[in-house]
Amino acid sequence: MSKPFLSIERLTQQFPDGQGGTLTVFENATFGIEKGEFVCILGHSGCGKSTIMNILAGLAEPTSGVVKMDGYEVSGPSLDRGVVFQNYSLLPWLSALKNVTFGVHARYPDWSKTKVIEHAKTYLSMVGLEGDVVHRKPSQLSGGMRQRVSIARAFANHPKLLLLDEPFGALDALTRGTIQDELLKIWGGTEQTVFMITHDIDEAILLADRILLMSNGPHAQVAEAVEITIPRPRNRTEIVEHPNYYAIRNHLVQFLGKRSKELSGKAADKEDMSPEPVRIDKTGPSESDAESEPRLRAVND
C-alpha cells in the first residue's frame, strides 16, 4: 500500500485534567492526505481540531503518534507547512506588503529585494489587494482584508502543506463568501495541498475534496471521511443545485447533530482508527435505493 503524501498515524493527545489524572482529547487519530488534496476537518469545539492543526504545524507536540510528510517525520515548525491563523496573525507594525515580504524573504533568502517585492505583490493582487492599500498597516484594514493578506502570505511561500485554522471564523457572512471564492481561485492555480479547520458545513462542502468528521471529545476520533462528489470548478450559487449537495449536507448535519455525541467518550476499541470512508453520489443510477432511506446512512465504497 503506498503511503499518502501526508500521513497522520495514531496521534493521541492527553492533558493533565487538574485533578491528578489525564484527559484524553483525542486518540489514535489516523488519516492521510494526498498531494494537491483539499481536506476540511469538521467537529464540535473541544474535539481537538486545533490541537491537530498545531501538531501538523509543528507548534505543539502530540502525547504519542507521528506525522509524516513525504515519508519524513514532522518535528517542529517549518516553512514547508504554511499556517493561516484564525486571528490573521499579521505583524501590526508592518504594512500589508511588508507582512508578505517578511514571509517571502524567510522562504527565499537569496532573492533580491525587488524580486521579493514583485513576488509579494503578485500574490496580494491574487487576493484582490492592489495599489496603495498594500502600504497600509493591518489596523487600517478591514477584517476581510487582513485575512486576505494572511492568505497571500501563506500562498506566496509555496508551502508543501497549507494549514488553515478557521480562517473565516471572525468574518461576516458576505466577506466570508468573497474570500472563499478567492481562496478557491488561488488554490485552483497552485495544486496546493490544504488542510483546513472549519465550523461551517457549507464552507466545507464548497471548498473540500474530502471532509473529515470528528466525534466529540474527550476521546474524540476522526470517525468518517466524506468524499465531496461535486465536480469542480464549484460555485456557491450552483453547487446547491447539484443532486449530491443536500445529500452530503444532510449527512454532515446528521453526524454533527447526533452521531458525534453518540460516538464520544468511547475509548478506542479497535486497533486501526482510520476514519470510515463515506461516498455519497446520487448522480449514478445505482444509488437510487439510498434516497428512500431518511437518515442517509453512509454508503461505503
Binding site: 504545524a57 509543528g58 515548525p77 496573525s89 505583524l91 514571509g103 524567510a106
Partner: peptide
C-alpha cells in the same frame, strides 16, 4: 501568535528577537 508567525517562518532566535 506573533512568536508563532516567527516559528512557522523558521526564524532563528536572534532574528525572532530583532524582527
Amino acid at each position: 501568535d506573533w512568536v508563532n508567525v516567527a516559528r512557522t517562518h523558521e526564524l532563528g532566535s536572534l532574528k525572532t528577537a530583532f524582527m
